[in-house]
Design a protein around this nucleic acid. Structure first.
Length: 270
DNA sequence: TACTCATGAGCAA
DNA sequence: TGCTCCTGAGTAG
């Protein structure tokens, strides 16, 4: 489920299993081979997630940048029995001399982006990303930046929340659920919202996405935060079109916004 | 087993 | 706006 919380979990795993270690980097599929050689047998300094992007910084000042897109998947192994077709593995990261039963190998399949870049290119990518609720000092500049971008824009708030330069890491699920929880109509222009309303969206994003990092799943109903509910129970509106709203009983609506499915409740978000 | 759809985003037109 | 990248979960039959 590649919204921002997933990427932060992956960064945490890289730091835990591979941080400060000499890594082998390979591309069984071949498409990443030339780039992989640039960081193969280098020490991983640190892994950092910003929005939906993962940066693996190596000691030779090169960085692997990964964006899962819609298909990308990670698999982690503590035994050398990788599953699935190896020719689909874009990138493989592993320790050459792991301790017994240690997690030592990560396979990456189907990413939109997997490349090796230098520090200037890292900065260029970061420059076009908005603040990330999972990285932010949220009393401070990051929150202000988000509020300013939204309240100065005539674009619908439903679109703004999907714009990675406005807020990095929110995707289609969190977009729908954040707007529902805020009681906001997705089609309202950002400029029509009060700063306090926009601030509340941000604070809610921090709460929901931190739970996502902790649990690994996107749960947006408070009463289920500790319950590990089945998929269809986790949300208020996402993928619930035609069903009754859990709060007001109205039929959940589904519309296309910028070619993405937008779920919302016409009763609660009038 | 075959088919559909998806949590994303860059690009051409 | 529509196409593309191209994995895998879910579902229909």
């Amino acid at each position: 489920m590649p919204e921002g919380h997933t990427v932060h979990r992956t960064a945490n795993q890289f730091n835990e299993y591979f941080g400060g270690r000499l890594l082998r980097v390979d591309s069984p599929q071949g498409r990443f081979s030339a780039a992989a050689r640039l960081v193969d047998q280098q020490v991983l300094r640190t892994a950092v997630a910003v929005g939906k992007q993962l940066f693996l910084h190596f000691e030779n000042d090169l960085t692997v940048r990964i964006h899962l897109g819609i298909y990308g998947k990670w698999r982690w192994y503590s035994e050398f029995t990788p599953s699935g077709a190896v020719e689909q593995v874009r990138a493989r990261f592993f320790l050459e001399h792991p301790a017994p039963s240690q997690v030592f190998l990560a396979d990456l399949r189907g990413p939109t982006v997997c490349d090796v870049i230098d520090q200037h290119e890292v900065e260029a990518v970061l420059a076009r990303l908005g603040p990330d609720p999972l990285n932010a000092d949220y009393q401070g500049a990051e929150l202000d930046r988000f509020v300013r971008r939204v309240t100065q824009s005539k674009t619908a708030i439903g679109q703004l929340l999907m714009d990675q330069s406005v807020i990095a890491g929110v995707g289609n699920v969190y977009r729908a659920e954040l707007l529902f929880r805020a009681g906001l109509n997705p089609f309202v222009p950002g400029s029509k919202l009060a700063a306090t309303q926009v601030q509340k969206i941000w604070e809610d994003a921090v709460v929901l996405m931190e739970i996502g990092v902790k649990t690994g799943v996107m749960i947006t109903r408070e009463e289920l935060f500790d319950a590990d509910p089945p998929k269809l129970e986790r949300h208020f509106v996402y993928k619930r079109e035609g069903q009754r709203c859990r709060v007001c009983g109205a039929d959940i609506a589904l519309e296309l916004m910028q070619a993405r499915k937008l779920y919302w409740c016409p009763g609660c978000q009038a």
